[in-house]
Nucleic acid binder design. Structure first.
Lengths: 334, 334
DNA sequence: CTGAAAGCGCTTACAG
DNA sequence: CTGAAAGCGCTTACAG
């Protein structure tokens, strides 16, 4: 049987209140007693029950991480950063893959509430924004890589707009004039921003982004491939393609190969995220890197500060992206 | 404030014992009362506290998943499978990346115990086997992709030996005679089995596996690259290479490219795992597929059965692998 | 400096 | 069929 606070108290000949105080470093305890009690706790391998202390108003030191899919390399890398920072700070993380489905989000949130988690990091999309609003009313929430302008929560995101601009500048600098883009749904703010940055940089260079050069995709290799195939089938096909994430870019690469279009000679591709995938494809992808580690760590920092200090004003932290040039982009002479 | 069982009881004019019974579907309650109470619980948005019920002897419906690194695609895919199956069965999973370090394992196990998780799925390596033994004495444990022959726990693994044989057979069939292998540490049973299967199949064909054709690597792209570079520097270099996981194979691919050795024309590579990486490299990797989804789901099944039914005999489940032939292997004429 | 007692939100015999 | 009471392992005023 596991030792309880009663066992320790009995062994030490004191009350459980006294033991509780030394556990929590509260109140005044004579140095002698304290040492003795600590020694006994060690000897008994006593570990306070988080369950019991949570029931008396303290924290569970656990929070939920909602992301679309842990098996997706981008979220896996972010999750690792979240986990590490959380662990450093004494927290555990329950991972929840939502597939971006509202009913899964709802179910998970319900479970997390029942389990009295201390807070939630939301990295998933939701359609019914009221769910986020309601949630943020009932516990600390920080949004990561996503935002809901109407809901007051801490937010940490990459500078998607600048990232989109960087992709465009790079392609323009290489001489491209027919530039297309593969995006996720425009209902996702980060996608919208990436496309917007891309579009603006192009327009400033006097190059409009044609509507039929904007393809909205689902978040999958397969859909990236399908949409790229459509773009490449056009007689006036683009010479450059900006993909809003690595998965889409992998699909684009596959479509190009199948269509006999060489990358980068006949088609330049810039992706976004810079997960491990970007480094292992053929050719390796030029990619706008998101600071995944920082994203995760900052989100945890915000959440824990909210938990342990006085609730502060909602912050919005924007982290810089960085263009990593590999071999999927090359100069174009028309 | 969240509604408690007291609120429901008061509203319904019954005792909390009665409410508890309808929550748990225990005891006899008149159909009328039950309906009324359920209606009130709905109206109050009442959700029983897992914390409180766990303190009274029930489960926390949470378990821990210990793996080396969630940002590694193989473990991310397994984790997703674990999460999905757990979720279906009403459990949450706390993810713990250990980097295969004993002190991290120990710390995590301690935390999980304090949090009263119902069980642990161990997919991580540990040096001090006694830790696993002690753990399995204190709560249900199932090992996944790892085994400790001396510790009685449920185990679910892929058939590593057969997988190694399959890799060798494939290469032999293509005419290769100088075959090398990149392995993880031989202290990991699964690595040992893979190499063993590979070696035996080679030997049965009359081809010994030379010691200097066995390279022990750390679990990283970088180490795969480094060791492959060493192999390729040999004048009598191998024409085929079996890598015990995709990450090592990615490193091998990089080393080959750097050394100007074409894959598969001058070097065939077979990897193991068949994560998403194997599909996106250049060339795509021929790989021995592990059934990651099944591995995860089976591990959860075993754990939950142990939890909810009478503890059964420790099972050892071995799942089949499957060779997926892509473009990193080709025939060799000497 | 130390302890008795109430309380957190439940479940479980046990009695009726 | 229903409820009073004890108990799970803690923490927190409060009193001394």
């Amino acid at each position: 049987m596991k030792a309880t606070i009663y066992d320790v108290a009995r062994e030490a000949g004191v009350s459980i209140a006294t033991v509780s105080k030394v556990i929590n470093g509260k109140g005044k305890i004579s140095e002698e007693r304290r040492r003795e009690i600590i020694e006994i706790m060690d000897r008994l391998h006593y570990q306070p029950s988080v369950i019991a202390s949570a029931l008396t108003g303290k924290h569970t030191y656990t929070f939920g991480l909602l992301i679309p899919d842990i098996s997706n390399p981008f979220f896996a890398e972010v999750a690792r950063a979240v986990e590490d920072r959380a662990h450093q700070l004494g927290y555990s993380v329950i991972i929840c893959s939502t597939d971006n489905k509202d009913d899964r989000v709802e179910r998970y949130i319900g479970l997390l509430k029942q389990k009295s988690v201390d807070g939630i990091i939301m990295g998933t999309g939701i359609e019914r924004v009221d769910m986020a609003a309601e949630l943020s009313g009932s516990m600390p929430v920080v949004a990561i890589g996503r935002e809901w302008s109407s809901v007051p929560v801490h937010t940490v995101v990459a500078d998607d707009y600048q990232g989109g601009r960087a992709a465009a500048s790079h392609l323009l600098g290489l001489g491209h004039r027919r530039c297309a883009v593969l995006s996720e749904s425009m209902t996702i703010i980060s996608s919208r921003e990436r496309v917007q940055g891309y579009r603006q940089a192009l327009e400033e260079a006097g190059i409009p982004l044609h509507n039929d050069h904007i393809r909205i995709c689902k978040f999958s290799i397969e859909d990236g491939r399908r949409n790229t195939a459509l773009l490449l089938a056009d007689e006036n096909r683009p010479t450059a393609l900006f993909c809003c994430n690595d998965l889409l870019a992998v699909g684009a690469l596959q479509a190009a190969r199948e269509a006999g279009v060489r990358v980068p000679e006949q088609l330049s591709i810039v992706s976004f995220d810079n997960t491990i995938l970007a480094a292992v494809t053929d050719p390796p992808l030029t990619s706008v890197a998101q600071p995944m580690e920082q994203l995760g760590a900052m989100a945890v920092n915000l959440l824990v500060r909210e938990l342990e200090e006085k609730p502060s004003d909602k912050q919005r932290i924007v982290l810089q992206t960085e263009l990593i040039v590999r071999e999927s982009t090359a100069g174009w002479r028309s």
